[in-house]
Every structure is written in C-alpha cells, then in structure tokens.
C-alpha cells in the first residue's frame, strides 16, 4: 500500500534560519468527505463489498427487465425445471420463474432491511444519546425500557403479530423496528456517557443552548462513525430476522415472496431441485457479506485512530 500524501509539518521546517526561503510543498487539504472516500477506497475488500452491493441493488431494481416472466406468473408447461435458456434460474413446483421471483424477493428484503435500519438507527441515536445526556429520571426509564425489551421473547412476539396480519410485508417494518433498536441504543448510551462532560458540551451549555439541541446538534454528530457502522450492522441483522421469520412462514407469505419464503419453498426439495434453494441462498449471502464488508471499510475509514486505512 503506497501512501502518496506528504506528511511533513504544514508550517515548514522550524529550524530554517529566519528569512531564508524554503520550498515548502503546498499543504494538501482534503475535504472531510474526500478524505473518507480516499481512506475507504484503499480498503480493497470494502470496495468489493460496495461493488457487490450496487450490483445487487441494480439487479433488484432492473433485473425484471431482462426476463419476459413476471414473478407471480406461472408457466404450467415448465414445472420444477432446472435452469435453462427460458428460465435462467429454473422454475418451482408451481411453474414460477425463480429468476423473476429472486428479483422480487431481493427487492422486498432490501426495502424492509433499509427502512428498518434507518428507523432503528434514528430511534437508537435519539434515545441512547438523549438518555446519556439528560440523565436522571429520563436515563433510568430509558435503560429500564431497553433492558426489558432485550429480555422479552421478541422473536415470539414478532411471529405472533406477523402471523396475525397474514403476510403484509409493510407491517414487518414497524415490527422489526420496535424490537431492533435496543441493542444499538445501549451501545450509543454507553459511548455518550463519556461525551456528557466534554468541554465542547459544557461550553454549549454555558452558552445557553437548550438541552435537546445539545443532544441533536452536538452529541449525535459526534457519534457519526458509530452510527454509520451500526446502520450497516442493522441492515444485516434485519435481513437475517426477516429471512428467519419468512422461512418459518410468519413474515412475508405467499402470494408475496421474499428471500426467506423462497428458501422455505426450496427447503423441501433440496436434493431433487437444489436450484430452488441455491439462487436465493446465494443472493442472501452476497447481500449480508457485502454489507458487512462495507461496514468494516466505513469503520476503518471514519475512525481517525485506525491504521488499516493507511496514513491520512
């Protein structure tokens, strides 16, 4: 790895005699985002993660254009056919095209995962940082709520409720959000408690900035790196939770499909029709691995003390 940035002191050599002209290389100034991008781009596996993720998103959005088959249409002349020219990923017992179903299922899983992760990170940041800064009764109640939600059988409640609403994927978003924010909130809370006494927070207090404004404008921005990394982790855990629920028959249900319900379809015929399992499973693993690689890259790029991203 070659770092090309000049790392000398920006003011020029101190031991130069006064008045002497010294050729000082112009200081290289990068905007913060440019700097993060450079650090991120040096991490090869993270770049691979971004490429895979972008391809997956493109596949889920545009993949349907390349096939004449619709995810819900049945081809009764091709039941349980292995991958072929007309059905690229094969067909299932009902004659559904697995390529088209994978496009649709990936779309469902992605939309659910992204929206749940955005919501959970916002809730976790506000509750975690708010509890740490405001302290007192707010903190006690917030922590009690977090601990309570951590020990309730959340998977059971998720299954109960999503079973009742009979497979409407939109209901999964608020459900997975309600049971997904606590752990991140606890991490953010424990990091924020050390920010409470920082000089810049005290200064803002002396300047008369309101308490919630301090939380939103001074404490939460300071946690940016942590929030972004936890956002990517949230995507992975949401995808896993949604897949598990749908696999067991509680989350997304027929006639709708998600990657989890596709896996459930394929699990019964895993030896006789392995393509029903292989394609959704491959997409799922690519999705979670790519997001994790991106998360690792972001962590190293955003963390000023990390040396993995190279110098500067």
């Amino acid at each position: 790895m070659t770092a090309t940035l000049p790392t000398g002191s920006l003011d020029g050599p101190l031991d130069a005699p006064p008045g002497a002209r010294v050729d000082v290389p112009p200081p290289l100034r990068l905007g913060r985002l440019r700097l993060y991008a450079r650090r991120f781009a040096r991490n090869r596996s993270a770049v691979v993660g971004v490429i895979i993720f972008v391809l997956l998103v493109a596949y889920s959005v545009l993949g349907g254009l390349f096939t004449p088959w619709d995810w819900s249409r049945q081809d009764f002349l091709a039941l349980t056919q292995p991958p072929s020219g007309s059905h690229w990923f094969g067909t299932n017992q009902g004659g559904n095209d697995i390529y088209a179903q994978s496009v649709h299922g990936l779309q469902r899983s992605l939309v659910i995962a992204l929206s749940v992760s955005v919501l959970t990170i916002v809730i976790a940041a506000v509750v975690g940082a708010g509890a740490a800064y405001l302290g007192g009764r707010v903190e006690r109640w917030a922590l009690a709520l977090i601990h309570f939600l951590l020990v309730v059988p959340s998977f059971l409640i998720l299954a109960l409720v999503s079973n009742r609403v009979s497979g409407d994927w939109r209901v999964l978003i608020p459900l997975l959000t309600v049971f997904g924010w606590m752990f991140t909130a606890r991490v953010i809370w424990s990091v924020s408690t050390s920010l409470r006494e920082r000089d810049y927070v005290l200064l803002a207090e002396f300047m008369g900035v309101s308490r919630w404004r301090i939380v939103l404008r001074h404490i939460i921005p300071h946690l940016g790196a942590l929030l972004i990394v936890n956002f990517t982790l949230g995507i992975v855990s949401t995808v896993l939770a949604e897949t598990s629920l749908s696999f067991l028959g509680f989350g997304v249900k027929t006639p709708d499909v998600s990657l989890g319900s596709l896996l459930a379809d394929g699990s019964g015929t895993i030896t006789s029709a392995p393509w029903l399992f292989a394609f959704p499973a491959g997409l799922l693993v690519l999705l979670t691995v790519s997001v994790t690689l991106i998360g690792d890259g972001l962590r190293d790029a955003l963390d000023p003390t990390s040396m993995v991203g190279g110098r500067a």
Binding site: L240, L263, G266, F277, A281, L284, V285, T288, V289, D296
Partner: peptide, 21 residues
C-alpha cells in the same frame, strides 16, 4: 468467521443437509 457470521441459519442448515446427503 466474517463470512460465517453473515450466513443465515436457514442457509447454513440447508447447506449442511446437502453436504450430508
């Protein structure tokens, strides 16, 4: 470990079944 961490339980279980068969 990083790869295994991202393999859903469903996929690993069914993969084990395939391998054992």
């Amino acid at each position: 470990s990083v790869v295994l961490f991202n393999v859903p339980t469903v996929v690993s279980a069914l993969g084990l079944v395939l391998a054992a068969v």
